[in-house]
């Protein structure tokens, strides 16, 4: 058991899991309280288009996915801020269009087809050292921006209309938050893959919400939970020799379910 920690790929996987947990705890908190779950789902699936373009152009897929996903998030933000009622439709369109672009560009790319399942469902055991540096940089960016804009993000996610009346730059703050969601999604693709991102973004924050009524504490608790889920998921998947992304999600979902059952029995009703 101890011996696996001596393997570099395994240590890389653990570090990647910890870094991703920080991002998903902090940003996932906003996703949950602001109810941006389907928006985040749309952004993460659209990211596949960025990966495909990266392959086609011979770039690092993670880098091209970062640029593409941020662009998609800004596009969705523009459309949703201008035409609020169409947001769900926009999400659906972007979701599928991104996936379609990804498939098309990967098909057109010369040479071997890349490991598609790795991107769709994650393969944290294959995270290279260079990606850890990029992930570390993204985590620092996310933490710095959130600490600088903590009050602004609160105002806009809590009551957008009132933030507008207070003359806060609501559009710019909303777009900035969407960019952070996009960056987080890109990081999480490494860990659990495009399809499973949404669970890691929401489950730790949703559990944390059950235990605290403060935004800051919710973030800290969600980060801790995310770390526990990814660590135990990675170790479990290694020991059982099953896919890591799916294991992480199932561990998270099991804890979430257990928390829900316990809370329901204690309070007699589910806190909504």
């Amino acid at each position: 058991m101890i011996s696996i920690f001596a393997l570099e790929f395994f240590r890389n996987a653990l570090v990647a899991g910890l870094l991703a947990s920080v991002a998903c705890g902090v940003i996932g908190t906003y996703v949950v309280v602001r109810r941006m779950v389907s928006l985040s789902g749309g952004i993460s699936h659209a990211a596949f288009g960025g990966i495909g373009i990266g392959y086609y152009l011979g770039l690092d897929p993670l880098l091209s996915a970062t640029v593409f996903t941020v662009a998609v998030a800004l596009g969705m933000g523009e459309l949703s801020l201008r035409r609020r009622q169409n947001l769900e439709t926009v999400i659906g369109a972007m979701w599928a269009t991104g996936m379609a672009l990804g498939i098309l560009f990967i098909y057109l790319s010369p040479g071997f087809a890349p490991d598609l399942l790795g991107y769709l469902f994650g393969n944290i055991l294959l995270v290279p050292r260079s990606d850890l540096l990029l992930m570390g940089a993204l985590v620092i960016v996310i933490l710095v921006v959130v600490s600088l804009f903590f009050r602004d993000f609160f105002a806009v996610t809590f009551d957008e209309e009132y933030a507008r009346v207070m003359n806060l730059p609501v559009e710019r703050i909303s777009l900035l938050l969407l960019v952070l969601v996009a960056l987080t999604v890109v990081m999480l693709i490494q860990v659990v893959g495009i399809i499973l991102v949404i669970a890691l973004l929401t489950i730790p924050a949703a559990i944390a919400r059950e235990f605290t009524s403060r935004l800051g504490r919710m973030m800290v608790l969600a980060v801790a939970l995310g770390m526990a889920f990814t660590m135990s998921g990675i170790v479990l998947s290694y020991l059982l020799n099953v896919p890591s992304g799916a294991t992480i999600i199932l561990v998270s979902a099991a804890v979430y379910g257990a928390v829900m059952v316990v809370r329901r029995n204690r309070t007699g009703a589910l806190a909504v």
């Binding site: 806060l168 009524s213 403060r214």
Partner: peptide, 16 residues
């Protein structure tokens, strides 16, 4: 259901 206390919510009215 937003996680915020009465004090924080009232205080946020100063942000402008």
């Amino acid at each position: 259901s937003y996680p915020v206390t009465v004090g924080e919510m009232v205080l946020s009215g100063r942000l402008g």
